[in-house]
Design a protein around this nucleic acid. Structure first.
Length: 467
RNA sequence: GUUCCCAUCGUCUAAUGGUUAGGACAUCACCCUUUCACGGUGGUAAUACGGGUUCGAAUCCCGUUGGGAACGCCA
């Protein structure tokens, strides 16, 4: 059997990490099985679906490198097909027109709640339509079985069973003639040959209704796999106040897609004690039975750790591409006035956790900075610092090769000569060159900044602090 | 309210009846060190509770508590 999975977001907002994890698991399972992965946009709610949301979802999927084999399909382009299926259901008596007013429905729900019952449609329009003028507005409901149970063996939750008496005749077509979610998913998954439905567990309660529809349609019922939700850092439901929730926000915050993917794959899935997975390993090892049942909380610190790991271990040319994107975002478009971004990556990968941070720190190698960091100045610019800067300036000017090791050696000699520790030499220079007390080894820092810029900045610092 | 789902260190998780309950992130201590980091070594830290079943339970069953989801002419 050819395995086919799908990711079917509704374009009512950006792609958040929960959705991304669902997409990842669906994608991984398809790839693991050598099957197909489908992207489908569930936009039947025309009020809330937007083009920017569609774009954001697609951009996110591309950035995460979750490629799809089919689609994107749009439900709004399949209305003819839905109509056809509804007509068939209607003709077979498996669906019916309902003329109940929203007021009646609302009152019924209220009464049922008050009586301690689960609100459900009472089947008022099931059989008798004689009192209604066919021109009245109506919705179409699916005739759910009255007796027995619906059960399914979820790949994550295990055996789940519902009584049909708990379910009701849900609406499959609105009064404006458009079909609804619970109906469209079934028709789509059937038409598209989806074998495994991997989705959030907020859909568990929809599943029995959908299974009844599959059966009424004579369609094969797919395997279901319901993923527990992802919570915020604080254990509460993910929301805007958690800062980054959208995938593209993580990009803006300086994370690599590789890191986010690796982080997400371990959220609700595991393979022994392994934490780091290449794409190939994920694909090879990913199975549905290793998915956790319980909800998991998002832990930004661990993401940071993974991001740092990937910044350090990925080819610097790859990381540099993403770094350039961040430098551009900071308004730096001309990189010709500074070092090769790859060299920035090599020097900063192990001293920063995000590319955003790296880009900010690297800015001083491309353009002049305004102010010196106050704390750094206070701590490191002391009596004698200016003299050391002057001394260093002369020694550096005399060098005929601008090499990190040579520079380090020169400054070490200077420290010895002046009978001070390297801290009193390296730190004032660091402040002079970067404006801060934090940078790579002083020789590497100077190579990144370049000879001319270094000499100019030392002179500037001498003038500034010597006054 | 009704139905469904869930429950191992702070967090992500391992252990599918027998382990001193393991790993990772975070945290703490020490080492390394010209800054910031990286790295290394070690430590603190968990089976929600109560009953069963069993020679033996984190693991199986029941209950309690706690959390979550669904109950729309949203998806």
């Amino acid at each position: 059997m050819l395995v086919k999975t799908r990711f079917a977001p509704s374009p009512t907002g950006f792609l958040h990490v929960g959705g991304a994890r669902t997409a990842l698991f669906s994608w991984l399972y398809a790839r693991h099985c050598g099957g197909k992965f489908v992207l489908r946009i569930e936009d039947t709610d025309r009020e809330r679906s937007t083009q920017p949301a569609i774009d954001a979802i697609i951009d996110s999927m591309k950035w995460l490198n979750l490629n799809w084999d089919e689609g994107p399909y749009y439900q709004t382009k399949r209305f003819d097909r839905y109509r056809e299926v509804i007509d068939k259901l209607l003709a077979e008596g498996k669906a019916y027109k309902c003329y109940c007013s929203k007021e009646r429905l609302e009152k019924m729900r209220e009464d049922q709640m008050k009586a301690g019952l689960k609100p459900r449609y009472d089947g008022h329009c099931r059989d008798d339509h004689s009192e209604h003028d066919p021109s009245e507005p109506y919705v179409i409901r699916f005739r759910n079985p009255d007796d027995g149970t619906v059960a399914f063996d979820d790949m994550v939750k295990g055996h789940v069973e519902f009584k049909n008496s708990e379910l009701d005749d849900f609406i499959i077509q609105r009064s404006d003639g458009t079909p609804t979610y619970n109906f469209c998913v079934v028709v789509d998954d059937w038409d598209m040959g989806i074998t495994h439905v991997i989705r959030g567990d907020d859909h568990v309660n929809n599943t029995p209704r959908q299974i009844n529809l599959y059966k009424a349609l004579g369609a094969p019922v797919p395997v279901f796999c319901h993923l527990a939700m992802i919570l915020g850092d604080d254990g509460a439901k993910l929301s805007k106040r958690h800062g980054a929730v959208s995938v593209m926000q993580y990009r803006e915050d300086g994370y690599l897609p590789e890191a986010l993917i690796n982080y997400l794959v371990r959220l609700g899935w595991s393979h022994g004690d392994q934490e780091i997975f290449t794409r190939e390993e994920m694909i090879n090892l990913f199975t549905l039975d290793a998915i956790t049942k319980s909800a998991s909380g998002f832990n930004t610190k661990k993401l940071d750790w993974l991001n740092a790991h990937y910044m350090k271990t990925m080819p610097s040319s790859e990381v540099a591409k993403e770094l350039v994107w961040h430098l551009n975002r900071l308004g730096l478009t001309d990189l010709s006035q500074g070092p090769n971004p790859e060299d920035v990556v090599k020097n900063y990968a192990e001293r920063t956790h995000t590319l955003k941070e790296m880009a900010q720190k690297a800015l001083c190698y491309y353009q002049d900075f305004e102010d010196y960091d106050k704390a750094a100045v206070k701590k490191w610019i002391k009596d004698g610092s200016v003299d050391i800067l002057k001394d260093a300036l002369e020694s550096l000017k005399a060098l005929d090769s601008w090499d990190a090791l040579v520079i380090d050696k020169t400054l070490e000699d200077l420290a010895k000569r002046c009978e001070v520790g390297m801290g009193k030499v390296g730190q004032p220079l660091r402040v002079a060159i970067t404006g801060t007390a934090m940078s790579p080894g002083i020789g590497d820092t100077m190579v990144l900044a370049g000879r001319e810029r270094v000499l100019a900045r030392i002179e500037r610092a001498i003038a500034h602090f010597g006054a």
